[in-house]
């Protein structure tokens, strides 16, 4: 998930930019010393491969009409090694920001950390740790799966943490965190399955790219896939039920209870003691806005604010008009 400018405060944005920039500069220097020109082209193409691979989608089981795709950071880390993969994914994130405007310019630091540095290094070392250089089919399946899940979950957890540090969240932190974790469990699972599939394919077709020394084969057996799905369905189910029991849905709450208007009749009242307790808990939990201080200030600012908006719109109209006139003159003058 791309982090956005608006979820960050300036110090957090500057801090993460500095960390990401420093990290990338360090990796570039380290890799730059040993890299051959052959690897330079390979890394560039691999970045482009990530874009293309994201178009290969699979329909999700049990959810008709939806489809998932891979992210690719862990796959690249396994094939290219973590340093080269980190540079490749960083360039992908930068192009997503600069050309496709996905994720903000200030959030670039966060995005590089969440989606590039953390998944590449963490995923690579988890994979290394579990696979331990051996070529057993089950071992590699588990290793790649675990690497993808850990890498993607960690990246996802960092998003609400960074937003929390910035202090811009009004959605309760835990709700946001749980939503991100639940959503990214599914994403990580898809990533894991496809990564394992690609590794198996590579081993069959081009053992030279992805070799474990002694030849071994990864096969996707139906049982393995099913067992994995079962385990993670249970985990996701447990996570979602936690989420559901903790707080009622925001919309439901807004109908049931309006603490800001004392004389407001609840439209939907529910006699259940548990739900009422949860409502009360949430009413206490939600931060009280400091509008009493704000309101006195805003009265004085009313007209200047209005003038600001009107002035800005007039200025834009003025610029547009001038540009229009100049453009039509250009057309007459030079016939282009």
């Amino acid at each position: 998930m791309h982090m956005l400018n608006e979820l960050l405060s300036v110090p957090v944005a500057a801090g993460t930019l500095a960390v990401a920039g420093g990290g990338i500069a360090f990796i570039c220097r380290k890799v730059g010393k040993v890299i051959t020109s052959e690897k330079v082209a390979l890394m560039g193409i691999m970045g482009a491969f990530v874009f293309a691979a994201q178009m290969v989608n699979i329909p999700l089981p049990g959810m008709p009409g939806t489809s998932g795709h891979m992210v690719g950071a862990v796959l690249l880390a396994i094939i290219l090694g973590p340093h080269a993969a980190a540079i490749a994914i960083t360039s992908v994130v930068m192009v997503q920001c600069l050309i496709f405007q996905d994720g903000g310019l200030l959030a670039l630091g966060c995005n590089i950390i969440n989606m590039g540095l953390v998944p590449c290094y963490l995923g690579y070392y988890v994979y290394k740790l579990i696979s331990a250089g051996k070529s057993g089919s089950v071992r590699i399946y588990v290793a790649a799966m675990a690497a993808c899940l850990v890498a993607i979950e960690t990246g996802a957890i960092l998003v609400p943490v960074e937003a929390l540090l910035s202090g811009v969240l009004s959605v309760p932190f835990l709700t946001f965190l749980k939503t991100m974790v639940a959503v990214h469990l599914i994403i990580g699972l898809i990533e894991g399955v496809i990564t394992v599939g690609v590794l198996g394919y590579l081993q069959q077709v081009r053992g030279d790219i992805f070799s474990f020394g002694a030849g071994g084969k990864i096969r996707m057996s139906k049982r393995k896939v099913m067992v994995t799905f079962l385990i993670f369905t249970v985990v996701i189910g447990a996570g979602l039920s936690l989420l559901a029991s903790d707080k009622p849905d925001g919309l439901e709450w807004s109908y049931a209870d309006r603490p800001d208007q004392m004389d407001f009749e609840p439209m939907v009242s529910n006699g259940d003691a548990k739900i009422e307790a949860v409502d009360k808990f949430q009413a206490e939990y939600s931060p009280m806005p400091d509008y009493s201080i704000r309101s006195s200030e805003e009265v004085s600012a009313a007209w200047t604010s209005f003038a600001g908006v009107v002035g800005a719109i007039l200025t834009m109209g003025f610029i547009w008009g001038i540009a229009r006139i100049i453009r039509s003159n250009d057309k007459k003058g030079f016939g282009n």
Binding site: S170, G250, W253, S254, S286, M288, P289, Y291, S305
Partner: peptide, 12 residues
């Protein structure tokens, strides 16, 4: 949904 305290706003 989360911040429903009312603010008195004057705009022009």
């Amino acid at each position: 949904f989360y911040e429903r305290g009312l603010v008195r706003t004057e705009f022009g």
